[in-house]
Simulated scan of single mutants.
Amino acid sequence: MVDITKLIEVIVKPMCSHPESIQIKQHESDKFIEFDLKLDPDDVGRIIGRQGRVVQSIRNIVYAAKADYNKRVRLNII
């Protein structure tokens, strides 16, 4: 089984100027397994990217790696 939390951390950490402030929390709802990514305010713009392109690429990778879950995976940036 793929550890989605570790995958998100490996992708996001090199792009952040404050990697020590990364926090990832997992929780489940009826239809989703949600991962909340909390970052330093200086790094949020880097992760979102222009017109959301960077975060969309990260989400595509995370959603493709969800093979062992019966629920959909959602990545939220807080």
Rank of each mutant, 00 (worst) to 15 (best):
Ala67Met: 14
Asn70Pro: 07
Pro41Ala: 07
Ser29Tyr: 03
Asn60Ile: 06
Ala67Lys: 12
Ile61Lys: 09
Pro19Met: 08
Phe35Trp: 06
Arg46Ser: 08
Ser17Val: 15
Gly52Met: 04
Lys66Ala: 05
Ile61Arg: 10
Ala67Ile: 15
Phe32Trp: 07
Leu7Thr: 09
Val73Leu: 05
Asp42Glu: 13
Ser57Gln: 10
Gly52Trp: 01
Ser17Thr: 15
Ile48Phe: 01
Arg50Glu: 11
Lys71Tyr: 15
Ile24Tyr: 01
Phe35Gly: 06
Arg46Ile: 12
Ile24Cys: 04
Pro41Trp: 03
Val2Cys: 02
Tyr63Arg: 11
Gln51Tyr: 00
Arg53Gly: 00
Lys31Ile: 14
Val54Pro: 04
Lys25Glu: 14
Ile33Tyr: 05
Asp40Phe: 01
Tyr63Asp: 03
Met1Trp: 08
Arg72Asp: 14
Ile33Arg: 04
Asp3His: 10
Met15Pro: 01
Glu9Trp: 01
Lys25His: 14
Ser57Pro: 06
Asp68Trp: 04
Ile11Ala: 02
Ser29Gln: 06
Gln23Gly: 10
Thr5Lys: 15
Asp36Lys: 07
Glu28Pro: 02
Arg59Tyr: 03
Glu28Ser: 11
Ser29Val: 11
Ile78Glu: 13
Ala64Met: 05
Asp43Glu: 10
Lys13Cys: 08
Ile78Pro: 11
Val55Leu: 05
Asp43Val: 10
Phe32Glu: 06
Ile77Ser: 03
Leu75Trp: 02
Asn70Gln: 13
Ile11Glu: 04
Leu7Ser: 08
Arg59Ser: 03
Ala67Asn: 12
Ser57Lys: 08
Lys66Cys: 06
Ala67Gln: 15
Asn76Tyr: 06
Gln56Asp: 12
Pro14Tyr: 07
Val62Trp: 00
Lys25Ser: 14
Phe35Gln: 03
Leu37Asn: 05
Met15Arg: 02
Arg53Val: 00
Lys6Trp: 12
Met15Asp: 05
Ile48Trp: 02
Asp3Pro: 06
Lys66Met: 07
His27Cys: 10
Lys31Leu: 13
Tyr63Lys: 11
Ile4Val: 11
